[in-house]
């Protein structure tokens, strides 16, 4: 990675670490929540909806990983991921509490 003279090497490292954490563990949690919601929302039989959501998960994970390294601001990246995670997690919790599972 081309380091700009204006930026210290330490800052670059933190930047990469924050993006890597976002791109791998946080991404996995977010993708899991998103496809869990999808599995509950898709208008299909439950086993079909589960499989369709699972198939989609790898594409979602890969694209989110790219986004984590493509966006300019790490802070906004994390804010967006945490926000989306809370929203999806809350929705999933509500859906399971009210609808139950098989």
């Amino acid at each position: 990675m081309a380091t700009k003279a204006s930026r210290s090497k330490g800052a670059g490292r933190w930047n990469v670490a924050a993006r890597t954490l976002a791109a791998i563990p946080a991404n996995y949690v977010l993708t899991s929540l998103a496809i869990a919601c999808l599995a509950r929302l898709l208008p299909m039989r439950p086993e079909e909806a589960s499989v369709a959501a699972t198939l989609f998960s790898f594409a979602l994970f890969a694209v989110l990983a790219l986004i984590a390294f493509a966006v300019r601001s790490v802070v906004r990246l994390w804010l967006a991921m945490v926000g989306a995670g809370l929203l999806l997690g809350g929705g999933l919790w509500l859906s399971i509490v009210t609808g139950g599972r098989l």
Binding site: C37, R40, P46, S50, A53, S57, R101, L102
Partner: peptide, 16 residues
């Protein structure tokens, strides 16, 4: 996809 339910079991866990 061949090992999808191992890597991403949450789509199934959401419904079952």
């Amino acid at each position: 996809v061949t090992l999808a339910t191992l890597y991403m079991p949450w789509g199934i866990a959401a419904n079952y």
